[in-house]
Simulated assay, not measured.
Amino acid sequence: MKKARNNEVADRRTASADAKAALLNTYRAAMTAGEPARMARQAERAAIVAAREERRLERERVKLEEQERIATEAAERQAAVEAAAVAEIEARESAEKARIARVIEDEAARKAERDRRYANRKARQA
């Protein structure tokens, strides 16, 4: 059986506008009803983002502290190596100076002994 109702263009437009208005009203009602939950989710997301940023900053701070510690240790090791090198050079120089002093003392003692023998020989001849 055919529909007995006669749908004109104007009737269809009115029905479409009413349906759109009903959908819009339903959407607005759902949005106002879900507003507290949406706000709670948004606040929770903001808290998660803040916590994530705080953890990132903490990781960067720890990384910087570790880099500073490593740099300090490297500088201390370098200073120790340099100090050891300076001490070794000074020890070599002092040993060289001591050897030279001993050689000079031995030479002076030998000359003094030679001069003494020469003086004794001259004294016997006179």
Rank of each mutant, 00 (worst) to 15 (best):
A10V: 13
E113D: 09
D115S: 11
Q42P: 00
E76Y: 09
T26P: 11
D115I: 08
R69H: 09
E68N: 06
A112C: 11
V49D: 15
K111A: 14
E8Y: 06
Q67I: 05
A85G: 02
S16D: 14
E44A: 08
A71H: 12
S16M: 05
A19K: 00
A119S: 13
R117E: 01
R12P: 04
D11S: 11
R92Y: 01
R45L: 14
E53I: 10
A83D: 02
E82D: 08
A46D: 15
I100Q: 11
R13W: 01
A50Q: 08
K97Y: 02
A109K: 15
L64A: 15
R38A: 14
A109C: 03
A109N: 10
L24S: 12
E60I: 06
A40F: 03
A15D: 15
A4V: 05
R52A: 12
A46S: 14
R117Q: 04
V62H: 07
Q67P: 00
A19W: 03
A33C: 00
A50C: 11
R99K: 10
R52G: 15
A123W: 09
A43F: 00
A108D: 11
R77Y: 02
D115W: 05
R92A: 07
S16W: 11
K97E: 09
R92H: 09
E105S: 12
A47W: 13
A33T: 11
D115F: 08
R5C: 07
M39C: 06
N7M: 12
L24D: 13
N25Y: 10
A95Q: 13
T72I: 01
R69G: 04
E76V: 03
E53H: 04
K122N: 04
A43I: 03
D106T: 01
R77W: 04
R102F: 05
A91C: 13
K111V: 07
R55H: 02
N120E: 10
A91M: 05
T26K: 15
R110P: 04
A101I: 05
E58H: 11
A21D: 13
R69L: 06
E73D: 08
K111F: 10
G34R: 00
Q67H: 04
P36H: 06
D11R: 01
A95T: 04
E113G: 03
A43E: 11
R92N: 13
E58D: 15
Q42F: 08
R45F: 15
E65G: 03
A95N: 12
E113T: 02
E44Q: 11
A91I: 07
Y27H: 15
A80N: 14
M1K: 01
K122Q: 06
D18V: 04
M39I: 12
S94C: 09
A84T: 03
R56F: 11
A71L: 07
